[in-house]
Every structure is written in C-alpha cells, then in structure tokens.
C-alpha cells in the first residue's frame, strides 16, 4: 500500500552556477546524492542544484554553500517556502505515478538517485527517486501554489492503490 507524506517543511535551497560546479557539488544534472551532513543534493537542472535538508536548516545550508570558494556567478537562494514536497513511497508507487507521469519509472531507467523534471498530471514537477528501506520512494517537488492540486491528483489516482496519507497536506499548501 503506497503512502503519501507531506515533506514541505524540508529546507530547500537552490544553487545556480556554471554546470562545472557539479564536481564540487558532488552530483550533476539528473542525479542526486547525500552530502556528509545528510542533505540531499539534487542535480535539478543544467547548472542548477536543489538541496533538501532538515526543517529549519535553510539558513545554515545557504551559509555553507555561499561560503565555498567559487569564481563565477553563483546564486544561493532559500526557496523553502516556494516549493511543496510530497514523498510517495511503496511498491505500487511507480504504478500509481504512471497514471500521471509519462516517464519510464522502471528500475533500469530511473533507479534510486535518478532525478528528472516532467509533467505529472499536467503540472511541472521535479521527481527525485530516493528509496527508503528498500522500498521505492519518490520526492515530488512542485511550485507551492500547485501543492494542493498535486496532492489532490495523487489522492485521486491513488484510490486504486489504497493510497494512505501519512500526514495531511499543510494548510494553505
């Protein structure tokens, strides 16, 4: 039975720079990795990284990345309040997502660590496969203003799979 958790309280920091920064960020576009602090560093776009960290740590994350030496133009922006994040977990999670998302979610094409941005039910959504305890798990990142719509869509599609909300969406999400 898949579950859906509102993880919007995670700190979110967007780092933009030349794609070359990927070497020092530890990950390039299309992949994700955990840094030593436990933050999930996501290659979110070409020359764009999204860092997901524990709630209320955005200031530290911004400070940490701004403190790293870099010669070119680099933007480190706290977007914690700008994105809603939903975590969809379970053996049926990929099948549920296939009702809304056109990307091949098989283990061969999108294994854990894979990142892509695609259409999910008509919305532009960042999808990060981040398995938990051996179970397929997806972090779905969407513009905060669309968070409720995405949540509603997943709930609708998830009826077929007995989707469980572990925690209801945040008010006003």
């Amino acid at each position: 039975m898949p579950s859906l958790v509102d993880s919007s309280s995670l700190a979110k920091v967007l780092v933009r720079a030349s794609p070359d920064l990927g070497d020092s960020m530890g990950v390039h576009f299309g992949l994700s990795t955990r840094d030593p602090s436990g933050a999930l560093v996501v290659g979110y776009g070409y020359g764009e990284w999204l860092v997901l960290a524990s709630p209320d740590s955005a200031g530290d994350v911004v400070h940490r990345f701004e403190g790293r030496p870099y010669d070119g133009l680099r933007s480190v922006i706290d977007v914690t309040h700008g994105y809603a994040v939903l975590r969809l977990t379970g053996t049926d999670a990929a099948e549920l997502l296939s009702r809304l998302c056109p990307i091949d979610l098989s283990d061969e094409v999108t294994p854990t660590g894979a990142v892509f941005r695609s259409v999910v039910g008509g919305l532009s959504v960042g999808v990060i496969r981040d398995d938990e305890a051996g179970e397929p798990s997806y972090l779905l990142v969407v513009d905060r203003s669309y968070g409720q719509s995405l949540s509603d869509m997943l709930g609708d599609a998830g009826g077929e799979f007995a989707l469980a909300y572990v925690r209801p969406p945040l008010p006003g999400m």
Partner: peptide, 15 residues
C-alpha cells in the same frame, strides 16, 4: 482523462 482542475492557491486562500 481524469478530471482535475489545476489551480494555483495562495497560502492565504484557505483563510
């Protein structure tokens, strides 16, 4: 397909 109304909501919309 499924009937979804994709709406953007302000965090104040519930209020």
């Amino acid at each position: 397909g499924r009937s979804h109304q994709l709406l953007r909501r302000s965090p104040l919309q519930a209020w």
